[in-house]
Design a protein around this nucleic acid. Structure first.
Length: 901
RNA sequence: GGGCGAUUAGCUCAGUUGGUUAGAGCGUCUCGUUUACACCGAGAAGGCCGGGGGUUCGAGCCCCUCAUCGCCCACCA
């Protein structure tokens, strides 16, 4: 590492590219990302939502890094033992799809390779991408403990997954069952309900006549008309259902219908699930291809016919349509129905169609034998996975930020259904179940050598588990469970966790259920996976559109970071919206954040340049009286900021904290304090140096969680200039916490006044179009703030470029050739080359009206007995003071107008 | 069919228990090379806080209602 340059040698603009890599390496080499465990402080642990291992980091990950790193750095700086535990997710279907696409480029399928070779090949990818993802996090400044990075297929996690499976199986919560499932014909696997995205689509509702069969199997001229959106499934119809209370069909129940084309007889059944008002009130029942029909079929013992194969092609149950795709079959069937006069009519219809969330293929509901997790079943009296999870949130053991998501979480948890956990893919945790030739089933954590019952050879279940089954174990599994490790004992329950609200059910819900269950020996408090979960919003493009590869509007966070700097990126994305709300991502915000970083850089350049190569003691509150008004003001304001930042951070209002620091540094420190010190420094008064350095130091400390690189780079120079105990690096320096030693309401009020007076002077300068280089004579006729104005007179003269003097309240101000203004009870007169009396009068009159109205408004409220009785004293006294000032101001304006003639 | 969110300056957004004249950044206009910064500075313009009603001494904030936009959930043949 090169030695940081002295202040005066800093380049005039902040260059992130020349700083970030070096600084990150410095932190990492010093081992600051690895926690220092300490007994006397509560540990702070946060688990990173593991990105998909084959993916690139996107803006959402960038936001997550910004949020998490801010929290982590803040805690670390407060001396908490802090662990940010990173990882990557094997992302079963997503990764398998990527590898299959790669194979396709070589003209291969996964079947060509076979399972073993395919998995091997996928591992090669994983090894390549894992380090790449970690590097991307590093570029953004993430201070995660890479030495502990966890991959969801690590042996440790395999053990945890199997232990969980075995335990839940033994409790009877995991079972194998035949149900209608969501089948993706492209991925060729079952999906959970969550992995199906529904989209509204314009479609048709087809009305088809099913003739009634008379005695002896002869079709009658009468028929029942059914309505369907999927006519191709009629080849698998095994009944028609009507509502038993529907008068129209009362006598049809029990009769047989002739299934057109197929020529099969199917019964009419009465079922409450049928809504008489929909369509014709009669529904064709296809238990093999529709979840509702499956239920109806079960209730009426209807046979199940499956007429499609696993690629959604019609199979030999489909008679003449065998081999067709479902689309072709639909067209053919409609044509045939039409020809034979069975098609009654067609209506336009809009309904939602399920699509695979991974490949967008239309989902086919199919009956299939799958592994399920029953989250509602009690595994011991009074305890179920979902019941315990809901209770933890309901009674506040797990807090949700923002709180409104609590309702969403609970609603889902209270209405949860069995989770289909098996997938027919190769990449993932293979289900730890083995079968022998004698139909014995072995469920075990360790691979069994042979069947324990008959010593027969075993064959493992081919399926793998839903990826979220393993990520759902993250908090305890990443820390070593099922082993009783030191890490698990020390860091569990973790403190906070953060994720997009879009994965609340996928991830958060599962972690809560699994954590509470697997760690249940620790009791209700000790078993929680985390105490607070933060849900952030989604990043959209500048037009508010969702970023997707197909739209081509995806923004790469690393490109942004290299253009504007990682700090600017983090600052912009963190202050762009409130937690939980979506945000639009725009270049303007980035540029503003970059400019702020540069502003900070230059303010430090100024301070360091003035301090030069020496060490200075911090200002001491005991010497407060020896400091100038602006010194006491900025110190008081700094403390106030520290209080605000502390409370914002504690309330997880990260953006608010960052914004308030920026506002302070920009608008108070740079715009006023630094400018005001210039006169004194030029005059050889060095007292402001300690204050400049101290405020800069605290500002950098507070800003560090948000802009780690530029603050660390600057602080490396600052720490050399401060006489006292200083950490070697800002990343582990203490975070400012106000002790209220410099609180000074009077100084704040006085400085506010001085600032307003300066603004008034400058305003007059501009309004009267005084030449930029002119130094007009200015009189400040002061009353209450005379001392303050006198003390800051030189600064006023310098920063507002005037020749100023303070005169007493009883002194007369000159009447002509001056522009006038008023701030509270201070009157401002700026000498002008010429004055337009009429214009001046109009302006004064307007101002008078405003002041009078303000005073009257306040007077009215203060005169209200109810208000006086109920409002807090501080509000009343504040209002009285303000009203007094407004009155004095109005009086002065009146007087001036009277004398203007 | 339920539920949630948003609506504040031209734009993007803050505004945490209701309290004195509602803020920031960007943009716009005017001026400016004052010894940190033109990735800058000074000044200005710009808001009946979506509409209506209510509670209160007092509402951007609480309640009701309407409107527009967006999202989530739900077995919408």
């Amino acid at each position: 590492m090169t030695t940081p340059p002295a202040g005066s040698l800093l380049p005039p603009a902040y260059e992130p590219a020349s700083v970030e890599g070096r600084i990150y390496e410095m932190w990492e080499r010093a081992g600051h990302f690895q926690p220092r465990e300490a007994a006397d402080r509560d540990p702070y642990c946060i688990i990173m939502p593991p990105p998909n291992v084959t993916g690139e980091l996107h803006l959402g990950h960038g936001l997550e890094d910004a949020i998490t790193d801010a929290l982590v750095r803040w805690h670390r700086m407060q001396g908490d033992p802090t662990l940010w535990l990173p990882g990557e997710d094997h992302a079963g279907i997503a990764t398998q799809n990527v590898i299959e696409r790669e194979l396709a480029k070589e003209g291969l399928t996964r079947q060509d390779l076979g399972r073993e070779k395919f998995v091997e090949r996928t591992w090669m990818w994983v090894r390549k991408y894992r380090s790449r993802i970690a590097d991307q996090h590093r570029k953004l400044g993430a201070s995660a403990d890479w030495s502990r990075s966890v991959f969801t297929l690590d042996p440790q996690i395999v053990k945890a997954v199997r232990a969980t499976f075995v335990s839940l199986y033994k409790k009877g919560l995991i079972y194998r069952g035949l149900r209608i499932i969501n089948w993706c014909p492209r991925c060729e696997t079952a999906l959970s309900d969550l992995e199906v995205d529904y989209e509204e689509e314009a479609a048709k509702l087809y009305f088809i006549r099913y003739p009634i069969v008379g005695e002896g199997g002869m079709p009658l001229p009468d028929y029942v008309t059914v309505a369907t959106t999927r006519p191709e499934t009629m080849v698998a119809d095994t009944g028609v259902a009507v509502n038993p209370s529907d008068d129209r069909y009362e006598e049809k129940i029990g009769r047989m219908l002739m299934l057109p084309i197929m020529g099969r007889e199917i019964p009419v059944v009465g079922d409450e699930a049928v809504k008489p008002e929909f369509g014709t009130g009669a529904v064709k029942v296809t238990p093999g291809h529709d979840p509702n029909d499956w239920e109806i079929g079960q209730r009426h013992d209807l046979p199940v016919i499956i007429a499609m194969d696993l690629q959604a092609r019609m199979n030999d149950e489909a008679g003449p349509y065998t081999g067709m795709t479902s689309e072709d079959a639909r067209a053919a069937i409609l044509r045939d129905l039409e020809d034979e006069g069975f098609l009654d009519h067609i209506e336009d219809y809009t309904h939602s169609v399920g699509h695979c969330s991974r490949c967008n293929t239309v989902i086919q509901p199919l009956p299939s034998e799958q592994w399920w997790l029953d989250t509602r079943k009690e595994y011991e009296p009074g305890h179920s996975l979902s019941g315990d999870a809901a209770a933890a949130v309901r009674d506040g053991r797990i807090g949700i930020v923002p709180q409104r998501f609590e309702k969403v979480f609970l609603h889902w948890m209270d209405n949860i259904r069995d989770w289909c956990i098996s997938r027919q893919i190769w990449w993932g945790h293979q289900i730890p179940v083995w079968y022998c030739e004698n139909k014995h089933t072995v469920v075990a954590v360790a691979d069994p050598a042979s069947c324990p019952e008959c010593q027969g050879a075993l064959r493992q279940d081919e399926d793998v588990l839903d990826t979220w089954f393993s990520s759902g174990l993250a908090p305890h599994a990443d820390l070593g469970w099922p082993d009783d490790t030191d890490s698990l004992r020390y860091w569990y329950p973790t403190a906070d966790i953060q994720m997009g609200y879009d994965i609340m059910f996928f991830w958060c819900a599962r972690m809560v259920m699994f954590g509470l269950y697997n760690m249940r020996e620790r009791g209700p408090e000790g078993s929680m996976p985390f105490r607070k979960v933060l849900f952030h919003g989604l990043i959209r493009d500048a037009n508010g559109e969702k970023m997707t590869k197909s739209k081509g509007n995806v923004v790469d966070p690393l490109t942004v970071a290299s253009t504007y700097g990682a700090d600017a990126f983090r600052f912009a994305i963190l202050t762009g919206a409130t937690l939980g709300a979506d945000q639009k991502f725009s270049d303007e915000r980035l540029a503003a954040a970059r400019n702020f970083a540069n502003k900070l850089w230059n303010s430090a350049r100024f301070v360091l340049g003035k301090v030069g190569p020496r060490e200075i003691k911090r200002p001491h509150p005991a010497d407060r009286e020896s400091y100038a008004l602006e010194d006491r003001w900025i110190m008081s304001r700094l403390e106030q900021l520290e209080l605000e930042v502390d409370s914002s951070m504690n309330a997880y209002q990260l953006g608010e904290a960052a914004r308030s620091i920026e506002e302070f540094l920009r608008n108070e420190f740079c715009d006023w304090y630094i400018e005001m010190t210039k006169v004194r420094l030029t005059a050889g008064d060095e007292r402001p140096l300690a204050v400049l350095l101290h405020v800069l130091d605290h500002g950098l400390r507070m800003l560090h969680p948000f802009m780690p690189f530029v603050t660390e780079e600057l602080w490396q120079a600052v720490r050399e200039r401060i006489d006292g105990d200083m950490a070697s690096q800002l990343i582990v320096a203490w975070f400012p916490k106000s002790a209220a030693n410099w609180k000074d309401a009077q100084a704040e009020a006085a400085m506010e006044h001085v600032i307003e007076v300066n603004r008034t002077v400058r305003n007059i300068r501009t309004e009267k179009k005084l030449e930029a280089g002119a130094r007009p004579v200015v009189f400040l006729r002061a009353a209450s703030y005379r001392a303050a104005l006198e003390e800051t007179l030189a600064a006023t003269a310098f920063t507002s470029r005037v020749d100023a003097s303070v005169v007493a309240a009883e002194d007369e101000l000159p009447l002509a050739e001056y522009g006038f203004g008023r701030v509270a009870d201070t009157e401002v007169a700026v000498a002008l080359p010429e004055v337009d009396v009429a214009v001046e009068r109009t302006r004064l009159e307007k101002e008078l009206a405003e002041a009078a109205a303000h005073a009257e408004r306040l007077g009215k409220q203060l005169g209200n007995a109810q208000f006086r009785a109920k409002a807090p004293a501080s509000v009343i006294s504040g209002m009285e003071a303000t009203m007094g000032e407004a009155r004095v101001r109005a009086e002065g304006l009146k007087e001036r107008l009277a004398r203007m003639v």
